[in-house]
């Protein structure tokens, strides 16, 4: 038996919105530690690694590890039937061919449940090496979304150049070129508005804006995003999943393979 109850159900709705445009289907691997999902997009350019920690749920029971194969578009549609303030419970029997979602209104005067068929997925699992990145950039998630959206006007790719002075995002195309430079925040009152660069070595890498724009769908989960880069390895874009009190409930990490000069 697997059962997980999340009082702040909107978090699960936001998690689904952050992956449903990038992935068609994926397995939720449920264990005592929590619910994990790892999957590549169909072009094998990007990888999503997602964790919802068991102690982030108000109630969590997982008698034995199970893998729930899910059509993510279907799950997203079902979760749209939950109100933002609903409590969401996910339930699956061992060896079941279906998963149940229960939505309770805060006053408990409306309870709905939806059963969804599970899929048999033969998913490939990749080992993500522990990496000491040359640069880690933290910035407001809304700022990163805006940069990706704005530079998409100019081209398909963004060159991210991180030095001790700050970060520069550049794009060029038929109509011209654009650059956005962010300086490190000297002193900010609010931590979530800060731009912080932790640099060991300067890095310049090129990435597809189409994928970065998919990643920014996770911005409602977190006020801050971190970009971790080293030469010639995939970029890691991380959004921490925090509840209203700011406690960590897990993360959504996206890995994006760089564009390499021929």
């Amino acid at each position: 038996m697997f059962e997980a109850r999340l009082v702040e159900g909107s978090l699960l709705k936001k998690v689904m919105e952050s992956i449903k445009d990038l992935l068609n289907e994926a397995s939720w691997d449920c264990s005592g530690n929590g619910m994990c999902l790892q999957a590549m997009d169909s072009s094998h350019v990007a990888l999503v690694s997602l964790m919802l920690k068991s102690d982030g749920f108000e109630n969590y029971r997982c008698d034995r590890s199970i893998s729930l194969g899910i059509n993510l578009a279907s799950m997203s549609k079902i979760l749209k039937c939950a109100s933002n303030d609903d409590i969401i419970t996910i339930r699956a029997e061992d060896d079941a061919d279906a998963i149940t979602f229960m939505f309770e209104s805060p006053k408990q005067d409306r309870v709905s449940d939806y059963e969804m068929k599970l899929m048999n997925l033969d998913t490939e699992h990749l080992g993500i090496p522990d990496t000491e990145y040359a640069c880690v950039i933290k910035m407001p998630s809304g700022e990163f979304s805006r940069i990706c959206r704005d530079l998409s006007v100019l081209g398909d790719s963004v060159i991210i150049c991180c030095t001790k002075d700050g970060v520069r995002f550049s794009a060029k195309g038929d109509l011209g070129n654009g650059n956005i430079k962010l300086a490190q925040s000297a002193n900010v009152d609010k931590e979530e508005e800060a731009v912080v660069v932790d640099m060991r070595e300067a890095v310049t890498l090129t990435f597809s804006l189409r994928y970065l724009n998919f990643f920014t769908k996770a911005a409602p989960l977190s006020s801050q995003v971190s970009l971790s880069m080293s030469e010639d390895v995939p970029l890691m874009v991380e959004y921490k999943i925090n509840d209203k009190e700011g406690d960590s409930k897990g993360y959504v990490r996206y890995y994006l393979a760089p564009k390499i000069e021929d």
């Binding site: 094998h44 990749l126 080992g127 000069e261």
Partner: peptide, 14 residues
């Protein structure tokens, strides 16, 4: 012109 690499060129299958 830069070409897009694949994630499986960097991470191994487990």
């Amino acid at each position: 012109r830069a070409s897009q690499s694949k994630i499986i060129e960097f991470f191994c299958s487990e």
